[in-house]
C-alpha cells in the first residue's frame, strides 16, 4: 500500500513538473482508464464526424468546394487513426474500441447526431463545430500523456484549414443573394446551441473535471472554454452579418466578456441517451461500413499470408 502511494506521489510530482508520461511509464489505473475513455471517444467522434459532412460531398456546389470537403473528410479519418493509435499505446485494442462503438456502448461527441440539412450546414459545421473543437483541442496539445499530446499537435494543424473553409462558405452565402443569406442564418440558428454544448456540462455538473485538471489532461474548465468560444464567435458572426440566436447575448463591459443565455441541457442529455435526431442513423452507418468491409479485411489477410508463404 505504501509502495503504491509512493508511486502515485512520484507520478503526480512528474505531472506537476510538466513532464510527459509515456506509455510504458508507471501510471495509476484511473489515469489509464480516463485516458482510454477520453482518447477513444475522441477517435470515435472523428470517425462518426465524417458522416454528416460526407452527406454533402456529391452535392457540393462547385469542384473547388468538393475537393476541399473531400480533403476535410479525409483529414477526419486521419485524425481518428492518430487517436486510435494513441489509445492503443495504453493497452486497449483497436477491435475492442470498434466493438464498443458499434455496440452503442461508447460515446462520441453529441454534435454529430444532428443532421446536415442544407449546404450551409457544411459551412456552419466548419466554422462553429470545428471552431469549438479547436478550442477544446489546442489545450490538449499540452496534455500530460505524450502520445495524446503529439497526436493533437497534428490534428490542430489540420483543423485550422477546416475552420477557414467553413467560414469561407458562410461568408459567401451570407454576402450572396437574400435566399443564400437566409440559408446561412438558418444554419447558424440550427448549429449554435449544439456547438455551445460541445464544451460539456457546466463546471459544477462536471464531476471528473477536477481530477483531469490535476492530472493535466485538461487545462481549462468547460465554462472557461465556452466563454472563450462565445467571445470569439460573437465578433465573427458580426463580420458575417449574421445573428447568433441568443436574445440574452450582449457585451458585458464589467466582465470584459459577452453574456449569454442558458443552454437546454435536457436536449443534451437526450442525445447522450441515444435519442438525438441521428443517433440510430450514425450507428447503423458505422456498423454497415464495418460489416460490408469484412470481406476486404479477410481477403487482405489471406493475400498477405499467401505472399508470405510464396516467398518463404
Amino acid at each position: 500500500m505504501t509502495q503504491l502511494l509512493q508511486l502515485e506521489d512520484r507520478f503526480q510530482a512528474r505531472i506537476d513538473a510538466e513532464q510527459k508520461i509515456e506509455p510504458k511509464d508507471w501510471m495509476p489505473d484511473a489515469y489509464r482508464k480516463t485516458l482510454i475513455r477520453q482518447i477513444s471517444q475522441h477517435a470515435h467522434s472523428e470517425i462518426v464526424g465524417m458522416l454528416p459532412e460526407g452527406n454533402w460531398i456529391t452535392r457540393a456546389p462547385s469542384l473547388r468546394r468538393k475537393v476541399a470537403l473531400l480533403a476535410k473528410v479525409q483529414d477526419e479519418a486521419g485524425h481518428g487513426l492518430y487517436l486510435y493509435a494513441a489509445a492503443e499505446t495504453l493497452g486497449v485494442s483497436r477491435d475492442q474500441m470498434y466493438e464498443e462503438l458499434h455496440a452503442g456502448k461508447a460515446k462520441y461527441s453529441s454534435i454529430f447526431n444532428y443532421p446536415t440539412l442544407s449546404w450551409a450546414d457544411i459551412g456552419a459545421v466548419g466554422w462553429l463545430v470545428d471552431g469549438a473543437a479547436i478550442m477544446n483541442q489546442v489545450p490538449l496539445c499540452k496534455c500530460s500523456f505524450g502520445p495524446y499530446a503529439r497526436a493533437m499537435v497534428r490534428v490542430c494543424k489540420e483543423e485550422s484549414f477546416h475552420q477557414r473553409q467553413g467560414f469561407e462558405i458562410m461568408m459567401t452565402l451570407a454576402h450572396g443573394t437574400p435566399a443564400q443569406h437566409k440559408m446561412a442564418q438558418e444554419s447558424l440558428n440550427r448549429w449554435w446551441w449544439p456547438s455551445m454544448m460541445m464544451f460539456g456540462p457546466n463546471d459544477d455538473a462536471s464531476p471528473h473535471s477536477a481530477q483531469s485538471m490535476r492530472w493535466k489532461i485538461k487545462r481549462y474548465s468547460n465554462d472557461d472554454l465556452r466563454q472563450k468560444f462565445v467571445d470569439v464567435m460573437a465578433e465573427q458572426a458580426a463580420v458575417l452579418g449574421l445573428t447568433i440566436p441568443d436574445p440574452d447575448m450582449h457585451w458585458n463591459a464589467d466582465r470584459g466578456h459577452y453574456d449569454f443565455g442558458t443552454i437546454d441541457w435536457k436536449e443534451f442529455d437526450e442525445i447522450l441517451r441515444g435519442n438525438g435526431p441521428c443517433n440510430k442513423e450514425r450507428l447503423d452507418a458505422r456498423n454497415k461500413a464495418w460489416n460490408d468491409g469484412a470481406w476486404v479485411r479477410e481477403a487482405a489477410t489471406a493475400f498477405a499470408a499467401k505472399r508470405k508463404s510464396a516467398t518463404a
Binding site: 480533403a71 483529414d75 487513426l81 492518430y82 493509435a85 494513441a86 483497436r94 489540420e158 487482405a300 498477405a304
Partner: peptide, 23 residues
C-alpha cells in the same frame, strides 16, 4: 510519427503515406 495497422509491409507503407503525409 505514429503507428498503424496493416497486413504487410506494402500495405503499411501505402497506409503510412495516406495517413501521415497528406500534406
Amino acid at each position: 510519427v505514429g503507428s498503424l495497422h496493416a497486413v504487410d509491409a506494402t500495405m503499411a507503407l501505402e497506409n503510412a503515406r495516406d495517413v501521415y503525409t497528406r500534406r
